[in-house]
Amino acid sequence: MELFSSKFWQQSRIYLLLLALAPALGGATNFSNALYLGLITLAATMAAGLVNVALKGIIEKEARVPFTVIVTITLLTIYQFYLMIFNASLLDELGIFIPLVALNVLVLRQTVLFEVEDVSQEFRKSVWLGIQFLFLLVFLGGLREMLATGGIMGTEMLARDLSFFAEPGGMLIILGMLFALVKAVAPELQQEREKGVK
């Protein structure tokens, strides 16, 4: 299926991490939510990867992406049931961002596992990407909470809060400025993006 040819998913690291932010950014309103979302994404990535490795050679080429998405969303639905019983307040806070993890690029990228020879290396690479994504998301969520409320997890850090950053617009401006900073300080990252890892 040319729509999801494996070449698309083997784009460079920064491109993938940026795209992976898209479904999770709205949910990362504070430090703990960002941590939970990052961990859920990492766990979903690993689960999808393990299932794909186990069924390598059985799933037809056309059915690979739908299969991965369906497996992931089923697991996430089960996790939602768990939260419904044991931690309803977290379910309320994360809301729609739990099912959206299934459309994360890092999860969809696991379809590459069906095609590559060296499965273990590819799997480790995707777990490493998931960990990097976790750190990035926690950093963004923590930064947002610090600017919006003046502290992280109840610890005072700033003299005054800037409630402007609690709104979605504030988050977008933070992200834009961070990206400009990265581009200004380390232009070689940009070149890596253009070349691609492979």
């Binding site: 709104e167 617009g169 504030g170 977008l172 401006i173 992200l175 834009g176 400025m177 400009a180 581009k183």
Partner: peptide, 17 residues
């Protein structure tokens, strides 16, 4: 360093406000 994605995101942020 401001062209491309940074200016896109900052513009989106201002639009959101």
């Amino acid at each position: 360093w401001l062209t491309g994605i940074p200016i896109q995101l900052i513009t989106l942020g201002i639009l959101a406000l």
